[in-house]
Design a protein around this nucleic acid. Structure first.
Lengths: 146, 146
DNA sequence: AGCATTTTTGCTTCGTCAAGCAAATACCTG
DNA sequence: CAGGTATTTGCTTGACGAAGCAAAAATGCT
């Protein structure tokens, strides 16, 4: 019980810190790029993107502005709805993500998998998926890349 | 793998949001009060406290100042080292923690344990503890004059 | 027009880094 | 050993970025 509380406090920060340290990229950016990269056409509405990344709309507006300013992402007015904007992952953004993910993967492996010992992995994965499920199926958990 | 990334992204925010919503208390405050409450004499050096809560020293300085201003905590000059300060949990602080923890417990139960199913709990706990272990023991209060 | 929806902006809070102050400790030098 | 200087350590402060909420702006729908 206490271990859980502690885990939730510490682990995300460690993973974030690893990413910042190794790649100069905060977790929120990584999540945004990854989420976009998995979207069909690498395109998503701002509001979808925000929800998928568990950020507020305003937070995503600012993050997208930042990512746009360095060319990782473009915001195009939505053709079918003049109010909307589509965020598109650029080639540069995809390249950046591909540059960053091995580092993140290594971090996750080191911080988590190396400690799993003889845990039943499929069962563990099922539990994790179940835990995040109530929030909504923002991303399909089939086809994990590791 | 993706489930883990997602879990780390989502769960802490949910737990924090629950606590803020139910108790008007951010996770960082809760962690601080809880950590202090577990220390012998409810006293800890600022730097220890910061490390245990996985915050920067400056972050803890500000948080402690805030908690001090509402009477949950006091900072006393350390007798054995003129540079140091000891953070002490006051009775009011302890009361506040005791007021908040059932709510947090319920939140953790609802968000996590309810999804654990038939997982081997002791093993699960051991894994979690192992994962956070590299950060160091939470309350190694050597050096404060409690 | 009137109301709903999508995104942005204003303001606040939280937390980090860089810099700084003060106490403690280490290292000379006689 | 006394006395002085340099370095390190513990904490605080200043300046800033990140992200949230509430309200505004822009657009669509009826």
């Amino acid at each position: 019980m206490r271990a859980i509380a502690r885990l939730m406090l510490v682990l995300p920060r460690m993973l974030d810190a690893d990413l910042v340290h190794d790649q100069r990229m905060p977790m929120s950016e990584y999540a945004t790029l990854r989420t976009l990269s998995e979207a069909p056409g690498r395109i998503m509405r701002m509001s979808e993107l925000a929800t998928a990344c568990f950020m507020s709309l305003s937070g995503m507006t600012r993050l997208a502005a930042k990512l746009e300013s360095v060319g990782y992402l473009a915001r195009l007015p939505c053709e079918s709805d003049g109010r909307g904007f589509n965020a598109v992952l650029t080639d540069a953004g995809l390249a950046r993500l591909q540059e960053a993910w091995p580092s993140h993967l290594a971090s996750v492996r080191r911080r988590i998998f190396d400690h799993l010992g003889d845990v039943d992995l499929p069962q563990f994965a099922a539990v994790l998926t179940a835990m995040t499920a109530p929030v909504g199926p923002a991303c399909d958990s089939a086809g994990c890349d590791a």
